[in-house]
């Protein structure tokens, strides 16, 4: 509970003013966002601001259900970072390189069972600015194992200009968010992954922004 209050305060005092005033964003098809969990949000990943942007699309009371799935090797580097990401931001740490044996997605299954909303970046890392990398397969496993859970592709553009990988000072630009229609897992994992990628590229076409020249 105390961490939930901490996270809400962090949002109200810091993240929301920062995102609404300093950054600013245009949302397309905001009405498609899920009203309830469980759900999975799939997004492209170019900036540390991506997770904060996806979180502020939802009302504050929804916040406790939102669980970003993040790389354990990066976000659990030291104790302070671990406290902030796991306890305050409530990330679900997953091992990027499976060590064999246990299912690395086990905590995701558990969170979905509790009605949480997962945020997953199937590209795996922030990658090249503004370019969409090939999707990793984890999302297709989740989709086939939870065919009843809606999966919302959300495309983010412009955030890599505000806070690109490797920089620390956020420069104000407007960014664009496009929410896609929900999809559901099918038996065929390959097929699902292709469809998801295609849906994401279509959304990206809807919100073309100026990239660096």
């Amino acid at each position: 509970m105390i961490y939930y209050i901490l996270r809400a305060l962090f949002h109200v005092l810091l993240i929301r003013p920062f995102m609404y005033v300093w950054v600013g964003f245009n949302v397309k098809h905001g009405g498609r966002l899920p009203q309830n969990g469980p759900a999975i949000i799939v997004s492209n990943h170019n900036s540390h601001l991506d997770t904060l942007t996806l979180e502020i699309l939802f009302p504050l009371r929804f916040l406790r259900k939102i669980r970003p799935v993040a790389a354990a090797d990066y976000f659990l580097r030291n104790r302070i970072l671990k406290w902030f990401t796991v306890d305050v931001m409530r990330i679900i740490p997953v091992e990027r390189r499976g060590k064999g044996g246990a299912d690395p997605l086990a905590p995701c299954h558990e969170a979905l069972a509790r009605g949480h909303v997962l945020i997953i970046y199937p590209e795996g890392s922030r990658g090249e600015p503004g370019k969409m990398a090939e999707f990793k397969r984890g999302i297709s496993w989740l989709a086939t194992q939870h065919p009843e859970v809606p999966i919302y592709p959300i495309c983010l553009r412009g955030l890599e200009k505000i806070l690109p990988k490797g920089s620390w000072l956020p420069i104000p630009f407007f960014c664009d968010v496009a929410v896609g229609e929900p999809m559901f897992g099918t038996g065929n994992r390959e097929d699902f992954l292709h469809q998801l990628e295609k849906r994401m590229h279509d959304l990206a076409e809807e919100i073309k922004v100026e990239h660096w020249i």
Partner: peptide, 24 residues
């Protein structure tokens, strides 16, 4: 707000990020 809109819609270079900060 108007400057942010302007800098968002015109083509810019990544190397000029500090320049935009000065402009703001």
């Amino acid at each position: 707000i108007a400057l942010k809109e302007f800098l968002t819609m015109v083509p810019t270079r990544r190397v000029d990020r500090p320049v935009f900060m000065i402009a703001y």
